[in-house]
């Protein structure tokens, strides 16, 4: 993991805030408050994710992953990726470290991509989607997301096979 990129980006965001505060403090303050709000929102989710990572590293080894949801994934693997994607909570980036851990243990990229796309179905927000766009839209939208998530997973595995170990 390239730690320096994060530090550079953090410095750039810090500079942007400093400039905005200097130019127009009343407008910049809500931006900072919004960021703090997001931070407070993701802290409990991060805690859950890192607890799951620790559990995973303690009780799940590469062999069992490879057996159930590794290379040449079975229906079980794809189903797990779809359902866990739908059920996962919080922003996608919070899940990245856990997903990378799973990759290191042998889960193929297709399953990760399927997981990430299936996250477009947000169960807690479904009533709101229905109230804005109707039941038909919500049902069709959700079905297409599931199909799209699966297709993207399969396509990415195919692409990885074609590209082999080539670096981009």
């Amino acid at each position: 993991m390239k730690n320096k990129t994060g530090i550079v980006l953090l410095v750039l965001v810090g500079i942007a805030y400093s400039v905005l505060f200097a130019l127009n403090e009343p407008k910049a303050l809500p931006a900072l408050q919004e960021s703090l709000h997001v931070l407070l929102f993701i802290i409990p989710i991060l805690a859950v994710v890192f607890f799951l990572m620790a559990l995973l590293n303690t009780f799940v080894d590469e062999k069992s992953i490879a057996k159930h949801i590794g290379e040449g994934s079975s229906l079980k693997g794809w189903s797990i990726a779809l359902v866990s994607g739908i059920l996962s909570h919080g922003p996608a980036y919070v899940w990245y470290p856990l997903l990378q851990d799973l990759r290191n243990k042998g889960i193929n990229d297709g399953l990760i991509i399927t997981f990430l796309y299936a996250r477009a179905i947000k169960i807690p927000w479904i009533p709101m989607m229905i109230s804005y766009f109707g039941l038909s839209f919500t049902v069709i939208f959700s079905i297409y997301i599931l199909v799209g998530a699966l297709l993207q997973g399969l396509l990415s595995n195919q692409l990885n096979r074609v590209l082999g170990s080539r670096n981009l």
């Binding site: 994060g6 942007a16 805030y17 408050q33 990245y96 470290p97």
Partner: peptide, 27 residues
Amino acid sequence: ALKGALKNLMMIAPMLLAIIGAIGLFK
């Protein structure tokens, strides 16, 4: 394993904070 997970968190912390800062600006 918890220590390892915490180490991972520390590694991504600067990037995570940068993204959260950028989200506030966008919103």
